Amino acid sequence: MHGIPKGLVFAIYYPFIATIGVPANLSVILIQSRRRCGLSRCTTDYLISMAVADFLVILVAGILNRIAGIYFRKSFLSITPVCSLRSTLIYTSIDISVWLTVAFTFDRFVAICCQKLKLKHCTKKRATLIIGVISTVCCLTKSVVYFIYEPLYIIENVPWFCRVKSIFYTSWAWVTYDWFYRILTPCLPFILILFLNVLTVRHILLASRARRRLRVQNDENNQSDTEIDSRRKSIVLLFAISGSFILFYSLYFVTFLLVRISRLTYFSGSNYTNSNFILEETGFMLQLLSSCINPFIYAGTQSKFRAELKNGLKFPLSIIVKLYKR
């Protein structure tokens, strides 16, 4: 990337993410809604809700925020009240996406490791309740974000753009809120996802060893074990989703630590030569990438999802062919 203007990189990257992420997440919503991928109803509901949250992240953070800021800098979206609302929606949609990933990880942990609890927890009704609670709590806790901004400029009595108020870095109330928010998202999800994955892997390894011993005793070595194969597919899907989350959100958390420990500030503006801006923007870029990677994980780990996707792509082509023949 040496010699390439950083502003050009951002101007190309965000439209690319939107072009890939929007149809990818919409395809997940449509395919999973048909419930033909062989997944349980609660798992399907989690995957649909995660796709909806990721779609909103790309729509608000990628299109209405970054793309509009680059290509339509002085539109009504840059007026301070609208800018503050955009930031609030960005934080809200990101939080919902993060905590739905945690809920999905916990659901898979219960389904694999806790057979007694599975009957009560892994149901469509419980999944709907958890998704609703997560969405409501995130909306309520992030509504406060609207009030941390002030105008960057005031031109003819019209406030333009947003910058974080200086009191945000000095007031004990705001500092406490910032620490609480950053620990809650994504520090706590990091810990929970890692912890649940370790327990899940441990359980699967122990169960697999026990099943192998039973199969040896029953002389069934030449037969495939469908239970182990099913668990293997579940763990691949689980690890791919949670692993991508941890990878892409790491820099975001590092940025927060630098701001609070090194006493820096969250950067306002688009100074492509400022190291703080580059660090913060790179973390944001990885966040958006995380929101469009899950559909490709589903396509890579689920054969039935791939089949449904192929059928969906063939359908408009078949219509075009039929119209052409007529």
Rank of each mutant, 00 (worst) to 15 (best):
227 E>H: 13
260 R>W: 05
231 R>T: 04
231 R>E: 12
259 V>H: 01
215 R>H: 03
228 I>S: 06
251 L>W: 15
213 R>G: 00
257 L>Q: 01
245 F>Q: 04
214 L>D: 06
217 Q>M: 08
255 T>W: 08
194 L>W: 13
207 A>L: 10
232 R>W: 05
237 L>H: 06
221 N>E: 14
191 I>N: 07
220 E>S: 08
210 A>C: 03
222 N>V: 00
260 R>K: 13
253 F>S: 12
239 F>P: 00
227 E>V: 09
260 R>T: 05
218 N>Y: 06
249 Y>I: 00
244 S>L: 06
198 V>K: 15
239 F>W: 10
215 R>L: 04
247 L>P: 01
243 G>R: 07
215 R>W: 04
225 D>C: 13
195 F>N: 10
232 R>S: 10
252 Y>V: 00
199 L>C: 14
215 R>N: 07
198 V>G: 04
228 I>L: 11
249 Y>R: 11
208 S>I: 03
227 E>K: 14
217 Q>R: 09
215 R>D: 06
249 Y>N: 12
201 V>A: 11
219 D>E: 07
239 F>M: 09
245 F>T: 02
241 I>F: 12
255 T>C: 12
210 A>V: 05
259 V>P: 00
243 G>F: 03
238 L>E: 09
199 L>N: 13
231 R>W: 10
258 L>S: 08
246 I>A: 14
246 I>H: 06
233 K>E: 10
251 L>G: 05
213 R>F: 00
237 L>C: 04
263 R>M: 06
205 L>S: 13
254 V>E: 02
199 L>G: 07
234 S>R: 12
246 I>E: 05
234 S>I: 03
205 L>G: 08
216 V>P: 00
202 R>Y: 09
218 N>W: 04
215 R>A: 11
225 D>L: 14
